[in-house]
């Protein structure tokens, strides 16, 4: 079976230096990959290439072995298989939680249902189930997103991701600016969701939450520094890699 995500020799130009240079990365079903690197390393760019938001200047992107489809219909189907948890969540503030969760289904819905979703509560049971998975109650469904707390929003965003039923989960620093307890909780939640046939690529600013990942990938100044399976990585070796990765950066190394 082809890997869910296959990036080969990706190059993305930047203003002074390339944002990504000759990056090659593959992720197969069942893998949980952590993407590490100091800020400005190109993690968000890499994720944007991975979810198709950004077309690289050079290199090949394959999803489940297929290049980006030409026909808009196929392309949408392709994109629906990739779910992204955005750093700024990108929930629709003006809509209810229910409508936001259903927005993840827009790829599969036609116009009539998409419009109906703005009028009536649709698929409440599936949405309630998704909320339950992220530890929220169904009573939130009718609530407007603008009225939620920060932690509730994070969870709703993850619930939306679940409702999309993607094969490949991408997450762009989902744990930044969360308190440690909540961060651990949400990370566990995401890792749980990423069992085969799914896969997870999650970018982290800080290297203190690596437990539970299968692989760790280091990105520095647009280049892939290392790509190692965690199972065969001794702590001391990891520390050395991280020291190299964060060389000269102000951020603390290990907890």
């Amino acid at each position: 079976m082809p890997p869910l995500l296959d990036l080969q020799h990706i190059h993305v130009a930047g203003r002074d230096q390339p944002r990504l240079h000759d990056v090659t990365l593959g992720i197969t079903a069942g893998e949980r990959v952590a993407l590490l690197g100091p800020s400005g390393a190109g993690k968000s760019t890499l994720l944007a290439v991975a979810n198709g938001l950004l077309t690289p200047e050079a290199g090949t992107v394959l999803w489940s072995g297929e290049p980006p489809a030409r026909s808009p219909r196929l392309r949408r189907r392709q994109r629906a298989r990739i779910g992204t948890l955005w750093q700024d969540l990108r929930l629709i503030e003006e809509l209810t939680v229910q409508q936001n969760l259903n927005a993840a289904r827009l790829a599969r819905w036609g116009w009539p249902r998409a419009l109906l979703n703005l009028l009536l509560p649709l698929e409440s049971e599936a949405n309630a189930a998704a909320l339950e998975q992220v530890g929220l109650g169904a009573e939130l469904l009718a609530c407007s997103v603008a009225a939620l707390s920060g932690g509730q929003r994070q969870r709703v965003a993850i619930a939306r991701l679940l409702r999309q039923e993607p094969q490949l989960l991408l997450a762009d620093e989902p744990l930044a600016s969360l308190d440690p307890r909540l961060a651990t909780e949400l990370l566990e939640l995401l890792l749980r969701q990423a069992e085969a046939p799914r896969a997870l690529l999650l970018s982290l600013h800080r290297p203190d939450l690596l437990r539970g990942f299968d692989r760790v990938v280091g990105l520095r100044r647009g280049r892939l520094l290392f790509d190692r399976p965690m199972a065969f990585l001794a702590t001391s070796e990891l520390e050395a890699l991280l020291a190299e990765l964060y060389r000269g950066e102000a951020v603390g190394l290990m907890p």
């Binding site: 938001l53 392709q78 990108r90 827009l106 599969r108 993607p166």
Partner: peptide
């Protein structure tokens, strides 16, 4: 937000 929705396939 529009980008996010497009990326999810809508």
């Amino acid at each position: 937000v529009e980008e996010a929705l497009s990326c999810a396939g809508s």
